[in-house]
Structures are given as C-alpha cells and as structure tokens.
Design a protein around this nucleic acid. Structure first.
Length: 276
DNA sequence: CATCAGGCGAGAC
DNA sequence: GTCTCGCCTGAT
C-alpha cells in the first residue's frame, strides 16, 4: 500500500472527467473514503481517496514504476493553473472547480478504440461498451487476492472478431469502425509504435487514416494516448463554451502546449454543471 | 414522445 | 475544399 498526499490530484475528478472509461467508483463511506477500481496497462489497481489522501493498493516499486507516470504525478498542475489570465473569470472558475484533474498517460490503442466509441454517445454507455468488449475479447487475468479482470482487447482480437459479435457489444453503427480500425492496426497499415515519434500534426493525420477517426477523435487520442497536451478537442460542450464565453476567440497562443489540459478543465466544468 | 450524446463517413457540389 | 445528411441506441 502506498499512500500519498498531493496537491491538484483527485481520483474522483479524474474519474468523472471521462478521460478514462475503466476507472470506476466501487463505493464510498464516511470512514474509509471513496474506493475506485482501475484497469489499465494490463493491470488492476484499487485506489482509496479520503480527502486529500490517496492510497494505492500496490507496492512502492509498482507505484514508482507504473502509476506515478500513468497519473502524470511529475507534472506541476498548480503551475499550469497559475498561468491562467487573471482577467479570464470563466477559465479561472473552471480550473478551480476541476483542479484535481490530471491528463493520464493511457494506452494508445485503448484510446483509439475508446474514443471511436465515444462519438455521439454518453459516458455511461461508453463505459458499458468497453466493459463488454473487454469481457468478450480481452485476456482474463487474476489479482493476487483472487479477483478477476479483463485486459483491453488486442487489435488482433478485434480484427478477427465477427462483425455481428462486435455488434452485440452495444457499439451500434461504430462496430464497423472498430473492426476496420483493428484491421488497419493489426495488419501494420498504421504503425502505432511510429506515432509516438511523430510531430503532433503528423500523428493526428496518421490517426485520421483510421476508419471512424475524425478530427475530434484524433485529438482526443493525441491528448490521452500520446500525451500531446497541445491537442484541444472540440466537442459539443467545448463548442458551446467557445461560443458563449469566447465569442472573439479562445486565446490559444497564450497557452501553447497546455491547451489540452485547459480543455479538460472546461469540459469537466461544463459536463458537471449540466448534470445538476 | 422527441431530442441528444465528448462525430464521422459518404456523397453532392 | 465545404455542406448536408443519416446513423445505433440508451438516457432524459
């Protein structure tokens, strides 16, 4: 068990922000705090958040080697929030509201599939789809405590899947996109390893060769799967905010390299406001 | 009941 | 290159 107390770090906010569809809340109690389960990078991790204190159910070694990077704990998010224009009341409010969000360093292939599924879809249903896909096509694994979980499916597994079986995972019209994309990746037509060394625009263009990946999805994949924090995905929420709060344009030049982080604060703020 | 969700592909022009 | 339209399906 590793327990840390860190500023600008909230599992609850990261979970609610909808960047990771396999981080789920397991329970909550006054005494123990909030408990979460995360399936990522071929592993399963339980996390407890109690106020400012976060505990990871893993060894110190695993924490240092795997999760510190995954949760982007080396980055100083206070510094990023500190860069915000003091006269920008909206952005200040949004970043204060979601100040515990971090841009996770997630698996590239998982992000491609996850954000293809995300189009014209609710977060709740996206989670359901990914859970069904993983149970059906992911490798079954076991924790030391005897629990069972499923890895995210490999490209080959989804490429070889029958279209009708994919359809049964609630993917709707996206099942063809997943199937085609899995084929492109497993055949090597699009080389994911090479994407990591590309410039942002080049990587984005390469991603858009995949069926079901347009501008918005490619930018989400760049942000969450390649940690290209200059990516600024514009969806319905962001689009609404840009129209309402920034009619004369969002000051992208001021925030070069951190656009995606700010996008998450804005997205989360608008998403949570809507749910109330 | 209609509308909408973290959009995209295909076809028209 | 830009514009329009149809799309699976569950939640509200």
């Amino acid at each position: 068990m590793v327990t840390i107390e860190k500023d600008f770090f909230s599992i609850r906010q990261i979970c609610e922000s909808g960047q990771c569809f396999r981080l789920e809340k397991l329970g909550e109690s006054e005494k123990a705090g909030e408990k979460y389960g995360l399936t990522a990078l071929g592993r399963y991790l339980e996390i407890v958040q109690k106020g400012n204190e976060i505990s990871f159910d893993c060894s110190q070694e695993e924490f240092e080697l795997v999760w510190k990077g995954y949760f982007d704990l080396e980055e100083d998010y206070g510094r990023i929030i500190g860069m915000i224009d003091e006269t920008d009341a909206y952005l200040l409010q949004a970043s204060t509201y979601g100040s515990g969000i971090r841009i996770l360093r997630q698996d590239l292939w998982e992000m491609i599939v996850s954000f293809i599924i995300s189009q014209q879809n609710h977060i709740k249903r996206i989670r359901k789809c990914i859970d069904l896909l993983s149970r059906k096509y992911g490798e079954e694994k076991h924790t030391e405590k005897g629990g069972c979980y499923y890895d995210f499916p490999k490209p080959e597994a989804l490429a070889e899947a029958a279209l009708e079986d994919l359809y049964a995972c609630n993917l709707g019209y996206r099942c063809r996109y997943i199937h085609d994309t899995a084929w492109s990746v497993s055949s090597g037509e699009v080389d994911l390893a090479r994407l990591k060394d590309m410039g942002y625009e080049e990587a984005k263009a390469e991603l858009m060769k995949l069926c079901g990946v347009g501008v918005k999805v490619a930018e989400c994949v760049c942000l969450f799967g390649l940690h290209r924090t200059e990516a600024f995905p514009v969806d319905t929420h962001i689009n609404k905010v840009l129209r309402q709060q920034y009619p004369q344009g969002f000051p992208f030049e001021r925030y070069k390299g951190y656009e995606g982080t700010l996008q998450q604060y804005i997205f989360y703020f608008d998403l949570m406001k809507q749910e109330k």
